[in-house]
Design a protein around this nucleic acid. Structure first.
Lengths: 363, 363
DNA sequence: TACGTTCGGCGAAACGTTTCCAGCCCTGCT
DNA sequence: AGCAGGGCTGGAAACGTTTCGCCGAACGTA
């Protein structure tokens, strides 16, 4: 009986007529089909597919049959049964995949994941906790092996719930109040603080601050750095020069216009996010003040160096952030069980001109 | 027997002691656990989870049990058994997730996918056909419902193979030689052609062209538009002013420097890709020629409008490209069986200054 | 009251894979 | 020559879910 199915190394074209991809029923070929055609047991096919040791003769037969049938392993079925139950998939929760900052993080994580044979499932929250929650839910339902999240900051219990359910979680770019979750951030405070000192040293006394939504952890940190920097420089914090909860280019542009229209207008701006920097610069250029009013942005911008003057920024190493986050996650996947770890990466100030404008005598 | 398991609407806390997420074995809770706790059949749990009609009393018991156990449906097992075998996952093959252009496409596709309850699995090829092939393979193994691909152009048989295997494929931004594959592109030729005519009308006679790798379909198309534009304007095509197979900022910068050093240097540049535009502009600024030599780039850049002069570009609507591509794919998923369709979207010229510089009398 | 019909719940089969286990053959040793 | 042991192989169970087929209860009608 088994002998009649065996092909002894020769593939019998009558056994399966299809040239490729589909078997007779229009279904995809399965391991069973391959096993039948090769005249071996289904377990043997599994072994060949997974590179486990098998008699060369059989392995050859299986490979030829698989080739002829256009067999493709079904990883969903595989990970369902596999002992480790790994899906080799990571969930990535970003603020907005279209933002160059998020995109850079995405790519860095992707590269690290690829080294481990993992693929990325990605989604954007737009700072909406409802969307974030939705993403975390479907990621969990798809049984991702781990999560890398730029948290909105309004869903921290969900993050911790995921971790407790057995899915390692790493926060990227921001921290979370969930106490046991790993995180990679940059030293936002120190970065802004140093920038404030620079401006003060250049004579600036009326420094404005543009901040993103206060729900965002980095926005708070950067503002804290601003406050601390002013305090250390012994400089007054003018509440009227602080504009927070700004989101997007237009909001920053409008706020900058308003600040510049004040009787005691600021002589320098610090902007706490890349889109806000763009908005601020647009407003400055409208009024032809880009050479007279200083501007330092947080996070680099693609063409910042080509502008005249160039935009000075507090830069972060996106690739490093993503790489570190992935590293922490893979540690967990390798069994690391210790307490939460926080990696803090340094920022780097890039002097391009706009941050080096001295305070004008008067305006 | 069944009676003893029933809880008649009351959840017995002794039955499962765990507060959440995990059952006693440390495994995740399964439908069977929920069924046992609620005192119903496993099929009933399935119906409740999938929102199919069930007696309110039972449904309530199931929901409470699921809540207590922290039950989360396993979508991998679900799609394995489900009649339609959908994974509700799309595979997205990009050139480079970090490139703002790719990022914008990504986001547009993500939004369209989200409307259909689908998630995105994304990967970057870096124009490497080997990586592309690897991505297509793992996407296939994960049984994505469909593929949206920015093809390298060197793997077209794989694309067609995926389609024949039953996975709808849509090419985005570029076409493929695989005859039966849907595609969304912009009218690259017309865009460049019109730009050439503008430059010619402004008096330019020595127009240089910077092109990306010739394996890339859009690079070829844009060059074709350049050639056609010159021909129609009755202008000579100087081979020495054409530099193709440039990839990345540095290559373009270097090429631009070389062209500007020629005895008969070009008075205008057309650049066929966003990074090349950056490189060209950097070279121009090094030599302080940005006000004297014209430059028109293909594809917009984030800060292009803030530069002095602004960079004129042939812009494409990224969101529309992504949306259209997703639309074509969902048509296929809804059963559309017709021949391949090609959507061609228009480009839009954005005059910002650098493309409006007239040809200098001499230099 | 008896019978036919409908409805909804239940257990079991099935999806495609990996893993367990029993059996086989071959080798090597006594 | 016989037996123990080891390495491969193949059938079957299992993963968590959906779907199928059946059965019992409830209801309406004669």
């Amino acid at each position: 009986m088994r002998g009649s199915r065996r092909l002894h190394g020769v593939i019998d074209p009558r056994e399966k007529t299809l040239s490729s991809e589909h078997n007779d029923n229009g279904r995809r070929s399965t391991m069973r089909d391959v096993a039948t055609m090769a005249g071996v047991g289904i377990a043997t096919v599994s072994r060949v597919v997974n590179g486990k040791p098998v008699t060369p003769d059989l392995a050859e037969r299986v490979k030829r049959a698989a080739e002829l049938l256009g067999y493709r392993q079904d990883l969903t079925a595989s990970s369902l049964r596999r002992a480790d139950r790994r899906t080799h998939t990571l969930g990535l929760v970003l603020e907005d995949a279209a933002n160059p900052f998020s995109a850079a993080l995405h790519r860095a994580v992707e590269d690290a994941a690829a080294e481990h044979g993992m693929l990325l499932l990605a989604g954007s929250t737009d700072e909406d906790p409802v969307r974030e929650r939705g993403l975390l839910k479907t990621f969990a339902a798809r049984r991702v092996d781990g999560l890398i999240v730029v948290p909105t900051g309004q869903n921290d219990t969900d993050l911790d719930a995921a971790r407790r359910a057995g899915t390692p979680v790493v926060c990227m770019d921001r921290r979370t109040t969930a106490p046991q979750v790993d995180a990679v951030t940059v030293d936002n405070r120190a970065g802004v603080q140093a920038a404030v000192k620079r401006l003060h040293a250049a004579g600036h006394r009326r420094i404005a601050f543009l901040g993103d939504l206060r729900t965002i952890w980095t926005a708070e940190e950067r503002y804290a750095g601003f406050v601390k920097g002013l305090a250390e420089a012994g400089c007054v914090l003018h509440r009227s020069l602080v504009r927070r909860d700004l989101h997007g280019v237009e909001a920053a542009q409008e706020a900058t216009r308003e600040l510049l229209a004040l009787a005691h207008a600021p002589t320098a701006f610090i902007s706490g996010q890349n889109l806000l920097t763009v908005g601020a610069r647009m407003a400055l250029q409208e009024l032809r003040l880009q050479h007279r009013v200083a501007l330092i942005g947080f996070d680099d911008l693609p063409l910042a160096g080509l502008l005249e003057p160039g935009i000075s920024v507090i830069a972060q190493d996106h690739a490093a952030i993503g790489r570190e986050a992935a590293g922490l996650l893979f540690d967990r996947l390798d069994g690391e069980r210790g307490p939460a770890r926080h990696r803090v990466l340094p920022t780097r100030y890039l002097a391009r001109g706009s941050g080096e404008i001295p305070a004008a005598e008067d305006r």
